[in-house]
Amino acid sequence: MVTGPSALDVLDSQLTADDSASYTKGLAALEQSLDSYWKFEVVPNQFKQSLAATDDLRFQYLDEHFGVIGSWDEVVDNLKTLNANAGANERYKILFLARHGQGYHNLAHAKYGNSAWNEYWLKKNGDGTIVWGPDPLLTDLGISQAQENRAQWKIEVLNNTARDPSLIVPKKWFVSPLSRSIDTLINTWDGVVDLQEVQPLIQENVRETIGVHTCDKRSPRSVIAQKYEKLGFRIEPGFEENDIYYKDDYRETVAEHALRINRNLQEIFTTTPEDIVSITSHSGSIRAQLLVLGHRSFAVGTGGMVPVFVKATKVGNA
């Protein structure tokens, strides 16, 4: 079942002062090189996860209608009204940031503990019993966590909108190319929407922190295409056959990951007219997304989800 964040999940969600400062410095340099860009901020008092008073270690989002404050109708009306009255340089979206369910690498990490994992096991592909690299699959628990989200989405759609139930369902889906995220999306959304119709887009920039950890090396493009295109998934243009970004001897910093996530969100807000969006990824990716969006840090357990109501303001003239 979907559980609260573990001690390891809490560790993965944390930002140091250096992480934030490095990202801010890198972002300033990037913005100076651009003719225009989106600045992101969180619209307050829409979801409980954004409130400072919400304890992320105890918060049970499935029992709290995913954290919505008030009714879904009120939040969606607010979204529609803000977009209808927005200037040419403003966009509002609700982003459902989902973490994949438990993968075999999560199981192994918990089995060996943080010290042994970081010192030895994360560079291996397995231990003779558990296989976690490259590109590990979901465990049975991970599959059930995603399916529990699906069951709750069906409840929300049926029972928590007074008018059109489909109003709260995302209209666009993005997903990491790692199998555990794609399989989580399938087990969450298949049956709520028609995946062949909505055609989730697989994107490199949504993936987990890259490098060193064998679990974060993706499968070849041909393997991903063979497994998932027949189910309705599309792969973004320019997606290389082999994982050209993964390195055995270098792992992205939090700031580098956040800058990559910023590029992804810039693209989404520029090219995606839909105002409710689902992004299925990883704990590190969600940490980076929350940093980029100006949201408080929030620990997310495997299979967890954080909705964020975002205002984006275009800076520049292009």
Rank of each mutant, 00 (worst) to 15 (best):
P177K: 13
H282F: 12
R260A: 04
L265C: 03
T214L: 13
P237S: 06
G284K: 08
N264V: 01
V254H: 07
Q226F: 11
K172R: 13
L178V: 07
F239S: 12
Y245C: 04
K247C: 02
C215T: 03
V175Q: 06
V193Y: 00
T184V: 02
E274T: 07
I279T: 06
L290S: 01
T188A: 06
R221C: 07
N264R: 12
L290G: 04
W173A: 03
R234D: 12
D190P: 05
N262E: 12
E256H: 06
T253Y: 02
D243Q: 05
P220M: 00
Y245T: 02
A288Y: 04
E208D: 08
A225H: 02
I182T: 10
V175C: 11
Q203T: 10
Q289F: 15
S222R: 14
Q199R: 13
N262Y: 15
E241M: 03
E197N: 11
I276V: 13
E256N: 04
R287S: 12
N264I: 00
G238M: 07
F269Q: 05
T253V: 06
T209D: 00
L265N: 04
C215M: 00
I268Q: 02
D190E: 15
N205P: 10
V223C: 00
R207Q: 14
V206P: 09
K171A: 14
P237H: 03
K217A: 14
V223R: 08
D216E: 10
K247S: 09
E229Y: 08
V175G: 08
E204R: 07
I202L: 02
S283R: 15
G232S: 06
T184E: 02
Q226K: 11
E241F: 01
Q199G: 01
N187Q: 14
R207F: 13
W173P: 00
V277F: 05
H257N: 13
Q226L: 11
Q203L: 15
D194T: 06
L265T: 00
F269V: 02
N264E: 15
L195A: 03
G191I: 09
E267T: 12
Q199N: 05
R221L: 14
Q289P: 01
R180M: 14
S181A: 15
T270S: 15
K172Q: 04
P220A: 03
S166N: 13
S281L: 11
Q196R: 09
T214Y: 08
R263F: 06
Q266T: 10
Y228Q: 06
V206Q: 09
Y245D: 11
D275E: 12
E208I: 03
Q289K: 09
N262G: 04
